[in-house]
Amino acid sequence: MISLNILEITYLIASITFILGLKMLSHPDTARKGNLIAAAGMLIAIVATLTLYQEFDSGKGLNYGLIFLGLAVGTGIGTVMAKKVQMTSMPQMVSFFNGMGGACAALIAIIEFQHHQHATVSGFDGELLVMLLGLLIGSVSFSGSMIAYGKLEGKIKDKVLPMNQAINMFLLAVIIVLIGIQMFNGSDPLFFYGLLAIALIYGILFVMPIGGADMPVVISLLNSFTGMAAAFGGFLYGNKAMLTGGILVGSAGTILTILMCNAMNRSLTNVLLGAFGAGSAGA
C-alpha cells in the first residue's frame, strides 16, 4: 500500500515537471532547460511505474523481460533516428514520433478491449466510451502523422480524391454511428475493428489534400490529438500523470495550432479546407 502512495507522489512530481517544462519551453531563455525538466519528470514516471505499480512478481518474469526489451529497443531506435536526422528534416521527425505516440494509445485501447469483452456492464458503459475514443483519436493521429511524414519527406505526392471533403464528412458520420451502435448495443469485436480501420483511413484522407507548406499546422493539430488520446488512456487507468501530460498537450497543442495559423494570417478552417480547393484546382 505504501508503494502505491509513493507511486501517486511520483506521478504528481511528473505532472508538475510537465507543466513547468511546457511553461519554460515558451520562453527563449529557459526553453532548453524546460525540455530537460520535462524529460526528467518522464524518467521518474517510467521508473516509478516499473518498480512500484505492482510488487515484483516472479511469475511475471516474462512480462518484465519484454517491457525492458521494449524500452531498450524504443530508446535505441529513437536516439539513433533523432540524432541522425538533418536539421531541415526536423518537422517530419516530430510528425513521425507523434504518430508513434498515437499508435501506442491505439494499441493500449485494443488490449483493454480484449479484457473488457469479458466484462458485462449494465447501463451506460463509460469505460468502453473512453476506450473507443482513445482508439479513434490514437489511430487517426497515427495514420495522419505518417502521411504528413511521408509528404514532407517527399515520398508521398499531393493527391486529392474527387470529393475528398465529402468523403471525409461521410467517414466522420460513419465513425459517430459506429460509436453510437457500440454504446447502445454493447461492443462487438467486428464493430470495434471496423472503427479502427475507418479511423486509420480517415487519418489518411484528412491529411492527404493538405499542401506541404501547411503541414506544420497539421502536425501541431495531430500532436494535440495524440495528447487527447493519451489523456483517455489516463482516464481509463485513473493515472494522473498520463491525464495531466495528455490534456496539457491536448489543450496547449490546440492553442498552439491556432497561434501558428494566426502567424500565417490564416484561420484553421482555411488551412484544413482551403488547401483542398487549391489542390483540386491543380489536379
Binding site: 511546457l22 519551453l25 524504443g74 493500449i108 500532436n223 500523470a241 498520463m242 498552439l256
Partner: peptide
C-alpha cells in the same frame, strides 16, 4: 518558438508509454 514547443509537447504526450 512554435516548432520547438510543438516538439516538446510531442515528447510530453509520450507519457502514454506509462499506460
Amino acid at each position: 518558438l512554435h516548432t520547438p514547443l510543438m516538439s516538446g509537447a510531442n515528447a510530453i504526450h509520450g507519457v502514454v508509454v506509462v499506460g
